[in-house]
Write a protein that binds this DNA or RNA. Structure first.
Length: 868
RNA sequence: GGGCGCUUAGCUCAGUUGGUUAGAGCAAUUGCCUUACAAGCAAUAGGUCGAGGGUUCGAGUCCCCCAGCGCCCA
């Protein structure tokens, strides 16, 4: 245990500086937060800690939400639970790739060969260097390790009671093993499948993305009214914002209710410039009020096109490459592009080949204009277009083979799980439900990126060297983790890679959420030396931000449902955002991001935790230095009050306060303890409901009153300077009560202010306060002993009120608090008067009262000062 | 367009199931070197609870409607 010296000692002057480094080191050495996996399941409280994105910059929001969770962890630990409290680092995926690209000035080119012994110090940073996939990945690993250290330093300084012997990263070996295992299991169960189909595609990131990564943005566009032609040359006008997709046209749709077009349904029109015949269909999604009411269907301009293409069984005419440029060549004389004038079509297309969609759009508009196919002038419009949340160009729809996790068929089950999950605050459940109800596609988990966990699959290669995607080679779970680009499937030799009748690797990596959704399992696997799923799963708590309910929370619920038909945890604690001091959202571009380390240095970790604790679950909170200042003051106050209590009680040996136990307690001491008991019970109830703010409020409120009133009232008695004959009994009662109440208050503050409470605890107690029991009502009952005495009821409150009256009188007379009260008149009914008698002595001392007159009548306190 | 949340003192926020005179911290003001604490303490002032309507003996709290702000989803 931490402290060996058993003498009670406290400093001359209370100092809150430097507690963080002192205690975080001692806690680590004494393994205070080490998880004991041998505990039975009921005694384990397990937390699915959010792994922070290490490539992101540290900001005050990290302090905020992680403190909320830590308060809960410390509370549960003091209640006797063994806390499974791991720490992960999210270093997986695109954010890391981007950071590495920018940090080192490199880019990944998978066609390059691996350079052994390559080091980041070889990089000058002057020009962008192309690296092989493997070299690039090594740089990612190098940088994330640096980044992780920065986070760990902050967490330790903040006093998170994480068990640092249980850590993981989301690209590490354990994460690989778990992600790939659950992938393989999903494939075998048929819950994960691959499909070649239209997919939303970011042309800059060159990857498919999922529904959760989508963002709708309103952008400027142009409507062009284009003439298509019937066989006889009559035009049919169609408005489109994407004329460059005219060569990709596969049909025309009108609304079935649209009277204007009833006569043309089933007829054929020819596309302008390219002269490809297109049939007119009806479909309810064709909006009669949009443009002319007739719409062209191309493969693919957007997701509506995909719907039309599917439901009307139209042909596929892909013209957009994955890099966002139009394909090099189209043969307009072939079956798929049966132009009635192939030569002309060919000529027009040459002007478009290999251009970006944006360039091609301008060219097509010009061509349409020149050839008289444009009706009227193009119209500027604002319309909603889908973007990748991290992307800058609108998404394209390209056809590609991707792996999917089934979600749509599980919607109802997932909604039911949502009802079982305790959302804190409960209003957050709606966000989950809205998301689940709005799902319209299965979850695409393959990403065409480099830094990530490989999809653990190969494919057979056919006789002509073609990849047989419908014949995936899925490894056995025991072979995992693998990298299919390096490892060889069972039954093959490496020489057969990419050869006819051989095999080829799936080049893709998994969506980061496909890994992050498994954090409960990764965390438990990281502590496999101590614990397993049987005792740690389902977990108790998932703390997380409100912004990732549709991703992290949802996907985690999904994976747990697919694999175990259960929730991954019982409770989820949702934190709000931290806003800048002006209540604006913090963002790098605004330059208003508040970084935590300088604040910790300025106010102390306890102070930042205090501010954090005043942010209720789910409530956005401003970074408010005045609140941090208040937290610092509280820490100092705790130190000073403790110093006083220890000074006055003359306790000699640590942990020896029972030796001071008097035969009985003075009424006001009892009454204060009863009030403390009520406070603690309410604070406990609040903690059990995860209302840590309410809990702190109750404890803090009691504590300030305790300092201002109780300590002042019993001060003289505790010093033993009372000249009454009951002196000894009175001072014993005060000292014992002070010590016991201090112990309780310190423990109640411990989850919120772990540093100052531990520091103070070490002055007079053995062991860490963070392994001491959370105070309970029955503990106070024991201190009280016989509680039958009724005289004490209300005496603490009455004494505080009278003392306050005396202070008010002195303050309004602008005199020192030492000024004597010439006469205090207390008028009340008999029962209140008898309560007053029990506090008379303490009030006289605390208020410096010369004479007290008690009268029977209506309640009245009158203070007459001695202003001579 | 749909949903959720917010609007209370100069600022940041509490306000339980409707119930005395709406609370706290910070800031402000006036004082106090008081042997735990001047990095402190005491006291004072400050609010027609976003607007309007309704239910009720009684509304910051419940209902309706409107406005502004924030977030989520289309």
């Amino acid at each position: 245990m931490i402290v060996v010296d058993s003498k009670v000692s406290y400093p001359e002057k209370v100092n809150v500086e430097g507690l963080e480094s002192k205690w975080s080191r001692l806690w680590e050495e004494a393994k205070i937060y080490r998880f004991d996996g041998s505990a039975p399941k009921q005694r384990i409280y397990s937390i699915d800690t959010p792994p922070p994105t290490v490539s992101g910059s540290l900001h005050i929001g990290h302090v905020f939400s992680y403190t909320h969770c830590d308060i809960v962890a410390r509370y549960k630990r003091m209640q006797g639970f063994e806390i499974f409290y791991p720490m992960g680092f999210d270093d997986n995926g695109v954010p890391t790739e981007r950071r590495v690209q920018n940090y080192y000035g490199v880019r990944c080119d998978p066609t390059l060969p691996y350079v052994p012994n390559f080091s980041s110090s070889d990089l000058t940073g002057k020009e962008v260097v192309a690296l092989s996939r493997q070299n690039f990945i090594e740089l990612c690993n190098e940088l994330t390790q640096k980044d992780e250290q920065v986070f760990e330093d902050l967490w330790r300084k903040l006093g998170l009671s994480v068990d640092w012997s249980i850590t993981y990263t989301t690209v590490g070996q354990t994460a690989r093993l778990i992600s790939q295992s659950y992938f393989v299991r999903g494939v075998l169960k048929g819950e994960i499948y691959s499909l070649d189909s239209p997919t939303l595609w970011d042309v800059d990131f060159q990857t498919a993305i999922s529904q959760a990564e989508l963002e709708d943005r309103e952008v400027e566009g142009t409507y062009n009214r284009v003439r298509f032609y019937f066989e006889d040359g009559t035009p049919l006008e169609i408005e489109t914002s994407r004329p460059e997709l005219i060569p990709a046209c596969v049909g025309v749709v009108v609304n079935p209710e649209d009277e204007r077009y009833k006569g043309i349904v089933g007829k054929v029109v020819y596309s302008p410039l390219f002269e490809v015949p297109l049939t007119v269909f009806t479909h309810p999604l064709a909006d009669p009020n949009k443009g002319t009411g007739a719409a062209m269907v191309s493969t693919f301009g957007d997701l509506t096109d995909v719907t039309w293409w599917r439901e009307l069984s139209l042909p596929l005419r892909n013209i957009v490459n994955r890099d966002g440029r139009l394909v090099k060549e189209i043969r307009f004389d072939e079956e798929n592009w049966p132009s009635r004038d192939p030569a002309t079509a060919q000529g027009f297309y040459e002007a478009l080949a290999l251009r970006t969609t944006k360039q091609a759009r301008e060219t097509v508009v010009q061509l349409l204009k020149d050839n008289g196919h444009l009706s009227g002038d193009p119209k500027k419009i604002r319309h909603v277009v889908k973007f990748y949340e991290k992307g800058e160009r609108p998404l394209e729809v390209v056809t590609s083979r991707q792996w999917y996790v089934k979600t749509l068929v599980h919607k109802d089950d997932l909604l039911r799980r949502g009802l079982e999950l305790n959302f804190i605050p409960s209003s957050m459940r709606v966000r989950y439900e809205n998301w689940v109800r709005g799902l319209n596609a299965d979850w695409n988990i393959s990403r065409q990126r480099y830094f990530g966990i490989p999809i653990p699959t190969w494919y057979e290669v056919g006789a002509d060297g073609e990849v047989l995607y419908d014949r995936p080679i899925v490894p056995k779970e025991t072979q995992l983790p693998i990298d299919p680009q390096v490892d060889t499937p069972e039954g093959y030799t490496e020489s057969q890679r990419n050869q006819p009748f051989g095999f080829t690797a799936d080049p893709d990596v998994m969506d980061t959420w496909a890994t992050s959704s498994l954090t409960p399992f990764i965390a438990i696997a990281s502590a496999s030396d101590r614990v397993d799923l049987d005792r740690c799963f389902p977990m108790d708590l998932r703390p997380q931000g409100q912004d990732i309910i549709r991703t992290w929370l949802f996907y985690s619920v999904l994976r747990s449902e697919l694999e175990y038909k259960t929730l991954p945890w019982e409770n989820t604690l949702i934190s709000g955002f931290v806003l800048d001091p002006d209540r604006k959202k913090m963002s790098k571009s605004k330059g208003n991001v508040v970084t935590p380390m300088p604040l910790i240095e300025k106010f102390g970790a306890d102070a930042l935790r205090y501010w954090s604790a005043y942010g209720r679950p789910g409530v956005d909170t401003a970074a408010d230095e005045s609140q941090m200042k208040a937290g610092r003051r509280l820490a100092i106050k705790i130190g000073n009050a403790s110093k006083f209590v220890l000074a006055v009680t003359s306790l000699q040996k640590k942990g020896d306060e029972e030796a001071l136990r008097p035969r009985s307690l003075i009424p006001i001491d009892k009454d204060m303890l009863l009030a403390l008991k009520e406070c603690i019970e309410q604070a406990t109830d609040a903690m059990d409901a995860y209302e840590y703010t309410r809990s702190l409020e109750l404890i803090e409120d009691f504590f300030w009153g305790y300092c201002d009133n109780y300590i002042e009232l019993v001060k003289v008695r505790a010093y033993g300077e009372d000249d009454a004959q009951k002196s000894r009994e009175g001072s014993l009662s005060a000292r014992y009560t002070l010590l016991k109440s201090l112990s309780i208050l310190l423990r109640a503050f411990a989850p919120f202010q772990p540093y100052i409470t531990e520091e103070v605890w070490s002055w007079w107690q053995h062991g860490s306060i963070h392994r001491a029991p959370w105070p309970l009502g029955k503990e106070i009952d024991f201190i009280l002993g016989d509680t039958s005495q009724t005289k004490s009821k209300g005496s603490y409150e009455l004494a505080s009120t009278v003392l306050s009256e005396i202070r008010k009188a002195k303050s309004s007379a602008k005199v020192s608090m030492k000024t004597a009260v010439k006469e205090l008149i207390f008028e009340a009914d008999d029962s209140l008067a008898s309560v007053f008698e029990t506090i008379r002595g303490d009030v006289i001392h605390a208020g410096v009262v010369k004479e007290v007159k008690t009268l029977t009548g209506d309640y009245r306190v009158q203070v007459e000062l001695d202003l001579a």
